[in-house]
Design a protein around this nucleic acid. Structure first.
Lengths: 348, 348
DNA sequence: CTAGATATCCAAAACGTTTTGCACAACCGG
DNA sequence: CCGGTTGTGCAAAACGTTTTGGATATCTAG
């Protein structure tokens, strides 16, 4: 141990904080009375109350919320389970969830899983051990879906932007992916585009499928579909391949999310094509980088914040009454952000 | 209430879960024995143990962590206080904090404050009420600094990337801002730049001051300084103003963070200047959009993840032993990411 | 003066664990 | 046969609250 740390390192273990008994003793009353003074649950003589309050201040007494929770049977804390907080979508969602929780006096435990099933399990354990009063679950790993189903009827759980099929009987809040797809389809159609390349995500993800479905429905023109994985690299690869084969015979690209759109942009840029001069590109999500890019990306704004906020607010409505939420679906509106990456189809 | 909801809405209140007493009664042993079987704290006859375990499974018994915590005097949960989780820097930091907490079996409560002092207070209350065992504090609102100081000696608190002055005596983990500034300065100098515009943030923020100091020291050339607020708009405004006055007589711009760099880029772009052809631009932070932009931004990568992880890991080292951490500083290395927005100074 | 209302406070139980001291039996070596 | 060890399990206390049913004293109305 370095000498100059000696002074600081002498830090003693945290000393026992004052309990309600200490306050009671110092004020010459019973713990019951202290509790009543602090909670206002029953009337207390004003002189006595004043004395108690003064002792509370002097001792710096703060009730132990653990004991309170144990007695109350609930902790006023819920969990938020997401795969990756560094993804801006989930970060926004988390912000909405935190806001909703805070508004109702709840704390929020961040359960970041990286799609790791063990990690998810450990966090789901918190709800079984009743350390948290409920859980907002946003798109976890497929293997844990079954476990989730088992929990659903017995514990308060809400799904935010569910991506996985088969989770019926739940409280669900999600964006209107299909409408988003339709917006892009109609937009490109109005610009005169008739042939489009559509880059989708894995088919197992419902939201992606809905986006594609809406797009095809509203675009009405010819649509070539390529399946990617929602990552930037796959958008690049898909477009580059088509380019190399000389088979990119369309005037517009609809990427299932912004990251893939960026990948596509990169491939087009490398091929010497101009966006939106030669070809238009649209994305989905409206992540931060979308408006910062050159050209700024036309995309569909997902109300990630609202999804998190709604799922949480709805969940808490039941949790606060000690109930398990019934099945219900809350679909949130989506908004088309027309920016610089889309333009009228070039005359052919 | 709509009829089709009737079935679902009939959800009964959550029924009382099995307690250790229920298990003990069903297995014909005392609660003590059940506890010992589950914790392994003391040996138990194998036949008895097997019987207990079978009852545990049958009843689906999970120990109430609240009661356990009350008895243990700690909750194995800490808080992470940040201003804005939707800011990618803090999201990365949060990810690091969550990882570190998870590794040591701790939960992490997300305290998003929006710089709101009341909100900060409420969250700091969690530590006083001992619902959390410690707090990682990242750059809160100035008004709550005093309150924080009062808490610091008594409760386990760690500072992550402290921006505010005067918080001595704390456990601090932060990036090496000064070294980052030096890296940029040296880089631009090597490229032959001799006159640079430096866009800084508010002087009250230590990290920004350090960046600027390092830059000036290593650049050695002429530096014009303009004070912004770390937001995109201010970068745009500062550069646009100089441009309008025709006084932008430099070959390089060092923005105190990436957002301001983007603002600067926008202003230069509008003025018809080419980056990096006419002028080089460098940022700080390496946010997601930096590599996605055109041209991709040369910037300093801040180890946000490591800052969060280190602060948390260090804090927990003491928390787990029931100690208040001593003052210490952990400075994390920073990395220059040379990308497309900087190039040799144009011949004049 | 008395029956009932009111004001004030307290004792005890309950929330669900873990920990610790002890009791009892069985076994061992001498 | 005896002192000591080992194996096994229980009772009770403790963690720090809130809640509830009284108890006691004082007041009010008739």
């Amino acid at each position: 141990m370095r000498p100059e740390q000696y002074g600081a390192a002498r830090q003693s273990p945290v000393r026992r904080p004052a309990s309600i008994k200490d306050v009671a003793a110092a004020a010459g009353v019973s713990p019951t009375t202290v509790s009543h003074v602090l909670s206002g649950n029953r009337p207390v003589n004003e002189d006595t109350a004043a004395r108690v309050r003064s002792v509370v201040n002097r001792l710096g007494y703060v009730p132990a919320s653990l004991a309170r929770s144990l007695q109350a049977g609930s902790t006023s804390v819920i969990g938020l389970l997401i795969p990756d907080i560094s993804n801006t979508f989930f970060a926004e969602l988390a912000k909405g969830a935190e806001d909703a929780a805070h508004d109702l006096g709840y704390g929020l435990i961040l359960c970041n899983t990286e799609f790791d099933a063990d990690r998810e399990d450990r966090y789901l354990g918190m709800i079984r051990s009743r350390f948290i009063d409920g859980m907002v679950y946003a798109s976890g790993s497929p293997p844990s879906r079954r476990r989730l189903e088992a929990l659903m009827g017995k514990f308060p759980i809400a799904l935010a932007d569910e991506e996985v099929e088969g989770l019926e009987g739940a409280l669900i809040a999600s964006a209107d992916h299909e409408a988003g797809g339709r917006l892009v389809g109609a937009h490109l159609r109005e610009l005169g585009h008739r042939r489009a390349l559509m880059l989708t995500g894995p088919r197992a993800l419902k939201s992606g499928v809905a986006r594609a479905g809406g797009f095809v429905q509203a675009f009405k023109g010819e649509v070539v579909e390529r399946v990617g994985d929602f990552k930037e690299a796959s958008g690049y690869r898909l477009v580059a391949e088509l380019l190399k084969e000389g088979r990119l015979d369309c005037t517009a690209v609809f990427a299932g999310n912004d990251l893939m759109a960026f990948g596509a942009l990169e491939a087009l840029w490398e091929a010497g094509l101009s966006v939106p001069g030669d070809i238009s590109v649209a994305g989905f999500d409206d992540i931060r980088a979308a408006s910062l890019a050159h050209p700024p990306l036309t995309t569909v704004h997902q109300p990630a914040y609202d999804v998190g906020r709604t799922a949480t607010a709805q969940l808490l409505q039941y949790v606060s009454r000690g109930e398990v939420p019934p099945a219900s679906r809350h679909t949130l509106p989506v908004e088309l952000k027309v920016r610089g990456s889309t333009a009228p189809a070039a005359a052919r």
